[in-house]
């Protein structure tokens, strides 16, 4: 609203909004608090002030070998996203700047592959992984996650590329730029923000993927999602330790996520809402 609002009204809305926001954030906040407690404190009843001990974090790292799943998560998320970008950038570039009559159909078809429920192909993928020795390997899972996110990557890049005015590329052509110059000096610098957003969002999606990572790993290639899922049974009874592991699993992506709110809307709605 472009008009002045009385201070009291604003304070009223502020209190309401903050109350709701804190309520929604509370489970995360309480997990962070609990992770800073000792195990005894953690089960001693509701308490928002922890003793700020890092003992649980140390336990998770030493007992559960936290760094292995963490490394796996990084490799899977970053690796699958980079792979997807390598395939998707040329495709999106071609569709945005040299569209044909069928471009729209191709894009819709790509989107439709995203609609296929994972569970529908669980059986063949599982068997393929089992028979080819890809089971519980980073390479197998990286390629799989790449395929899963490829449609979203193509789509996001396409919507970003399409916003680069065609006239600018024509201007470059008139200015004597070859295709190589055009890509190097004009297109790439203008496309980098879009590529970065796509990269960010897809790292988040790949990091949080929790169906295939659980199905296709045991220990070697298990990323944090699978690692944490294993806490559901007996070990989960250690509240502080569970909290510490949870915080370590979500912290990096939470921070990335805060920086990519805008792109999130666009990426997940395939450009339907901007």
């Amino acid at each position: 609203m472009a008009r002045a609002v009385s201070r009291n009204t604003k304070i009223g809305w502020t209190i309401a909004a903050w109350a709701v926001a804190l309520l929604i954030f509370f489970p995360i906040l309480y997990t962070i608090i609990t992770s800073l407690k000792s195990e005894q404190e953690a089960i001693a009843g509701f308490d928002l002030i922890p003793s700020f001990t890092l003992e649980s974090y140390q336990t998770v790292q030493s007992q559960n070998n936290y760094w292995r799943p963490f490394t796996n998560s990084v490799i899977l998320a970053v690796g699958s996203t980079l792979l997807a970008l390598i395939v998707a950038i040329p495709a999106a570039w071609a569709m945005a700047f040299s569209p044909t009559k069928r471009t729209k159909d191709i894009l819709m078809w790509m989107l439709s592959t995203k609609m296929m429920p994972a569970v529908a192909v669980l059986v063949p993928i599982y068997l393929i992984f089992l028979r080819t020795g890809l089971m519980d390997t980073r390479i197998g899972l990286t390629v799989l996650l790449m395929m899963i996110n490829l449609p979203i990557v193509v789509w996001m890049l396409y919507t970003y590329f399409r916003e680069i005015p065609g006239e600018i590329l024509e201007a470059a052509r008139m200015d004597g730029a070859t295709l190589r110059d055009e890509i190097l000096y004009v297109l790439t610098p203008m496309a980098i923000p879009g590529i970065a957003s796509t990269l960010l969002l897809n790292i988040i999606l790949a990091w949080n993927e929790a169906f295939w990572t659980i199905q296709l790993t045991t220990t070697n290639a298990a990323p944090l999602s699978a690692f944490i899922a294993s806490f559901s049974s007996p070990q989960g009874l250690f509240w502080a330790k569970l909290s510490a592991a949870s915080v370590m699993a979500i912290a990096p992506i939470l921070v990335l996520g805060w920086f990519s709110q805008k792109q999130l809307v666009r990426g997940l709605t395939f450009g339907a809402v901007k």
Partner: peptide
């Protein structure tokens, strides 16, 4: 060009 088509970067 009509939109000037300057290189924004």
């Amino acid at each position: 060009f009509q939109s000037y088509a300057l290189y924004p970067h």
